[in-house]
């Protein structure tokens, strides 16, 4: 390996940044293609795919695809549904999974190791294998609503939220993070007479920003991108999320321009959420070794 000297340090930096820039540009290609294509007529979009024109704002550009996309599907409703389901699930997941992890790490109850092992074992079970039993269960569960007890959870927000408010991966993330927190802090708080709920709320959670961000982003992506489950349990348009809504654009004659417009629109919340939490996310990845 060449030795870094003051003479070649600049050159190495140039090479390194050039390579990184090329990689970054390659990673950006799909997004650039999507956004550029969303302004082109379908015919031009398909013709441009054979050249670099696909990534450039050239040709007959307009907002027609966006106008047509809004006419074809209730995009605002779908985005609201997805954001509501995803946001609620993320908040509940952070709460429930952090409390669960807290009990595994700090509360010395018998059998916690076995229970944690069972929870972690669920990580290797693909969701597709349990989806039918879950569907049968969800279609029969009771719910106390405004009109008394209702049977069956289909066609609701709750059926898209509640089955996902706890999961093995998020619990694992919190467990790993809590284990690395200084034990002296907890012991000191116990000596001072703090209760476990107080320790959870006042000491552990304020120190858990990075893992919260990581768990939130991973959960957000999983929920926002969910397709199979809402497809099976939601039969009314009023509860449909964005990914099922994407199917509105696949007709016999596929309107590719509208699809790109729709994809551009539904990507905005994901990008915004990631940009909001990216600093904490990267810090957490660096500290836990979890790969996104």
């Amino acid at each position: 390996m060449a030795i870094v000297t003051p003479e070649n340090r600049g050159l190495r930096l140039v090479v390194r940044y050039t390579v990184l820039t090329i990689i970054a540009v390659i990673f950006c290609f799909p997004l650039v293609f999507m956004i550029m294509s969303s302004f082109k007529p379908s015919q031009q979009l398909l013709t441009d795919t054979g050249s670099l024109r696909a990534f450039l704002p050239v040709g007959d550009l307009s907002f027609d695809n966006y106008i047509e996309a809004f006419a074809r599907a209730p995009i605002g409703l779908f985005v609201f549904n997805s954001m509501f389901v995803t946001g609620t699930t993320v908040i509940l997941t952070l709460l429930i999974c952090s409390m669960t992890a807290f009990s595994f790490v700090y509360l010395k109850w018998r059998g916690r190791g076995l229970v944690l092992s069972i929870i972690l074992a669920t990580l290797i079970v693909p969701f597709e294998t349990i989806v039918i039993p879950l569907l049968l269960l969800a279609s029969k569960l009771p719910w106390l609503g405004l009109h008394g007890i209702e049977w069956g959870w289909l066609n609701s927000y709750r059926v898209q939220i509640i089955p996902f408010v706890a999961d093995g991966l998020t619990i694992f993330l919190f467990v790993q993070y809590f284990k690395d927190l200084p034990g002296e802090l907890i012991e000191a708080a116990r000596v001072e007479g703090a209760s476990w709920p107080q320790i959870y709320r006042r000491i552990v959670m304020p120190l858990s920003g990075p893992v919260m961000a990581t768990a939130a982003i991973l959960k957000f992506l999983a929920m926002y991108n969910s397709y199979l489950w809402p497809l099976m349990v939601v039969q009314k348009e009023q509860y449909r999320p964005v990914m099922v809504g994407l199917q509105y654009f696949f007709q016999l004659n596929i309107a590719w321009g509208e699809i790109m417009a729709y994809l551009s629109l539904i990507t905005v919340p994901v990008l915004a959420f990631y940009l909001l939490l990216q600093r904490a996310f990267i810090a957490s990845i660096a500290s836990t070794g979890v790969k996104g």
């Binding site: 569907l135 049968l136 279609s139 069956g152 497809l231 099976m232």
Partner: peptide
């Protein structure tokens, strides 16, 4: 198919 399974 899902609707048939769920009886809906």
């Amino acid at each position: 198919v899902a609707g048939a399974l769920a009886g809906s």
